[in-house]
């Protein structure tokens, strides 16, 4: 069986700054958590795992070389952006969902059918023609998730998906994510978001500070509280 994540000496620099530094990581876990402070390189790692960055080192997600084999990558890994407004490309919900299927070579009629199915599955069958700008933040987040799920990825990267959501919306999204068959890589600064993860990676200044079971979250939180108790 291929690993969900397989990174070997992955580094990324931007304008001379090292943002990711020699990450080596291999795991078969279905629920992976990546925790770290703001600026620790979490969002960059999310983009790297989706194959969007020209990284150094070797990177495979679900067995696919996502950087170089873009065609296979879009079927293997999906990215849920932190801000749905950054992710949604099209003016209406149906177009947004249909886009990815078209990119995968699905014929328009079949794509339209699958979009309708996906909307029905999440109980929003009548959303298709709605303009995206009229949706609430939580509804936009759901559109993003459906757009990714429509493409049938084996791994979904979640970049702080709960930020800005109220408690009921957050609980609903969490339940929907828990029910997914795809492997999840959940990125967050908040250890509470990652309680269900079976493998946790603590990222600090572009490096892996610790890695292991959910107990890593306890270490992380203790350290964060220690830092927060001091004045900057």
């Amino acid at each position: 069986m291929t690993s969900v994540l397989d990174l070997s000496h992955v580094s990324y620099r931007l304008d001379g700054h090292a943002i990711l530094q020699g990450l080596t990581l291999r795991t078969d876990a279905r629920r992976i958590g990546i925790v770290g402070r703001n600026g620790s390189g979490k969002s960059t790692l999310a983009r790297a795992l989706t194959g969007l960055l020209a990284i150094e080192g070797r990177l495979r997600v679900a067995g696919v070389d996502v950087v170089h084999d873009r065609r296979a990558a879009i079927g293997a890994v999906g990215l849920l952006f932190q801000n749905p407004d950054h992710q949604i490309i099209f003016p209406t919900v149906a177009e947004e969902l249909q886009f990815g299927l078209g990119q995968q070579g699905v014929a328009p009629a079949e794509a339209g059918r699958r979009v309708a199915e996906m909307l029905a599955r999440f109980g929003c069958a009548e959303w298709g023609p709605r303009p995206v700008n009229d949706l609430s933040h939580g509804q936009k987040q759901l559109v993003c998730l459906m757009a990714i799920l429509a493409m049938g990825p084996r791994v979904i990267i979640l970049d702080e998906p709960f930020s800005g959501l109220d408690i009921p919306t957050r609980m609903r999204l969490a339940r929907r994510l828990d029910a997914l068959d795809a492997a999840l890589v959940h990125i967050s600064h908040d250890p509470a978001d990652l309680r269900n993860c079976d493998h946790v990676v603590w990222l600090d200044q572009g490096r892996i500070a610790a890695e292991g079971g959910p107990d890593v979250l306890g270490q992380y939180e203790a350290e964060m509280r220690r830092i927060g108790a001091r004045d900057a």
Binding site: D69, L79, H86, I89, Q103
Partner: peptide
């Protein structure tokens, strides 16, 4: 951001090319 969102879902061209920024 939207350029990223486009590329994450295949972009304009998806022939084995690392789309570095």
């Amino acid at each position: 951001h939207v350029a990223d969102a486009l590329r994450a879902r295949g972009g304009l061209i998806d022939e084995g090319r690392p789309n570095g920024t």
